[in-house]
Simulated scan of single mutants.
Amino acid sequence: MTRNNKIVLVLMLILGTAIFIFSVRNVSFNSLIGDIIKLKWQWLLLAVVSMLLSFFLEALVVRVLLKREGSLFPMRDAIRIPLIEQLFNGITPFSSGGQPAQLFVLLQSGIDAGRATSVLLMKFVVYQSMIVINFVFSLLIGFQYISDKIHALSLLFVLGFIIHFMVIISLLLIMYWYNFTKKMVKFFFKPFKFFLKKESRYLKWEQIIDEKIDSFYKESLRLKRSWRLLVKISLLTLVQLFFYYIIPFFILLALGVTNANLIMVTTMHVLIVMIISLFPIPGGSGGAEYSFSIIFTSFISNASKLVLAMLLWRLITYYLGMFLGMIALVIKPQKLVDTDSKK
């Protein structure tokens, strides 16, 4: 981690503490302690296990993709990837640091740059696709409920959907209309020439974008040929997301909330995650807590329980990954086994 990363990490921990203190300002301390004592720890443990299973399945996706690329990647090193991704997603705006961090871990493990980029591109395409599929189903199930009760958040849900949907459309355009997409990107990129003072800088960015499009197009051809692999990692990613999205349901059960509907709670969590992606602050801090409190007030009427539910949710879905990522960062990778060279 760079010095700036460490500073941001400390600032995020301070901000998280400040948000929690602000959240409990009107809550009785005795009530909060009483709710903690009454927690049903077996359900809370299930919430933690669900988060760990989500990490494990993401690691499994990476391992399956690397095996297809001719590398027998140790599971111990594969698990480092989602954990370090969580850490850098959590300390960078719009979770922008996760992809470079994963690439660094793969290079550190002895994977060559081309193979590592290929794996991460395939993983990214499948993950984004499954996110959009989950979100579409969640909108169909829960949007009416949200729009009736929380009008402001419903606009954010739609905006989040549009952004993620446009990402998928862009990827599909590259896959199936490569030449047209390149021309279109160059056309829309031309106005940036007026904002970039040096023409060399404009040409440099144009070259970077061209290389990214070319790289993705090559990988898309391989994706289309490997439809069985695509189905396999898509199913693994769906299960991974399911374990992540179900966490609030276990938290509600831990708090003794028995009237919560599994489908509706999971749906609401999918929508909250979409909102978080819109906030530029690392981890969506502030926006995440606010969205959770507003939406889940329908399931929890008690103020202290609602605050405790929000705290437990953030600890499990955000801070747990960051702390495990810090541990994973200092663990040295094992030597890579190349199955092609063994043959």
Score class of each variant (00 low, 15 high):
291 S>H: 01
110 G>Y: 08
295 I>C: 00
40 K>F: 07
308 L>W: 09
336 L>G: 02
23 S>Q: 09
94 F>H: 07
137 F>E: 06
166 M>P: 01
84 I>M: 09
295 I>W: 01
254 A>H: 00
153 L>V: 02
4 N>P: 01
265 V>H: 03
35 D>V: 00
292 F>L: 00
17 T>C: 13
227 W>H: 11
317 T>G: 11
105 V>Y: 02
83 L>A: 11
55 F>T: 00
210 D>T: 07
252 L>Y: 04
63 R>E: 15
38 K>H: 12
226 S>D: 14
271 L>D: 00
112 D>G: 00
280 P>V: 03
129 S>L: 15
303 A>S: 15
100 P>F: 05
321 G>L: 05
141 I>Q: 08
64 V>W: 06
288 A>N: 12
231 V>T: 10
121 L>V: 04
207 Q>A: 14
131 I>G: 02
32 L>P: 02
142 G>V: 05
29 F>A: 14
75 M>S: 15
36 I>K: 03
1 M>L: 10
185 V>Q: 04
17 T>H: 12
248 P>I: 00
126 V>I: 15
189 F>E: 07
274 M>N: 14
86 Q>M: 14
243 F>Q: 06
80 R>C: 10
83 L>T: 01
107 L>F: 09
302 N>F: 08
278 L>E: 12
118 S>W: 06
136 V>A: 11
47 A>N: 13
284 G>A: 05
214 D>Y: 13
335 K>N: 15
330 V>Q: 13
252 L>A: 01
189 F>L: 03
252 L>F: 07
38 K>W: 08
168 I>S: 06
244 Y>K: 06
238 L>P: 00
165 F>Q: 09
38 K>G: 05
329 L>R: 02
120 L>M: 13
117 T>G: 10
141 I>P: 04
316 I>P: 01
195 F>M: 13
284 G>V: 00
99 Q>N: 13
273 V>S: 12
323 F>A: 07
230 L>M: 13
24 V>Y: 10
214 D>K: 02
154 S>I: 02
85 E>M: 13
343 K>M: 15
59 A>R: 11
342 K>Q: 12
149 K>I: 09
176 Y>T: 07
277 S>T: 03
71 S>D: 14
248 P>E: 03
216 F>V: 07
329 L>E: 07
314 R>K: 11
298 S>Q: 14
192 F>H: 08
332 K>G: 00
312 L>H: 01
245 Y>Q: 03
269 H>D: 02
173 L>N: 12
254 A>G: 08
164 H>S: 12
179 N>D: 14
293 S>G: 04
282 P>W: 08
105 V>D: 08
160 G>E: 07
36 I>A: 12
231 V>C: 10
234 S>F: 06
264 M>V: 04
5 N>Q: 04
1 M>C: 02
305 K>Y: 03
81 I>Y: 06
142 G>W: 05
235 L>Y: 09
300 I>N: 00
30 N>M: 13
65 L>R: 07
269 H>E: 04
174 I>D: 04
74 P>I: 04
140 L>K: 05
297 T>M: 12
118 S>Q: 10
278 L>Q: 08
122 M>A: 09
68 R>H: 14
126 V>S: 01
10 V>D: 09
20 F>G: 06
283 G>H: 03
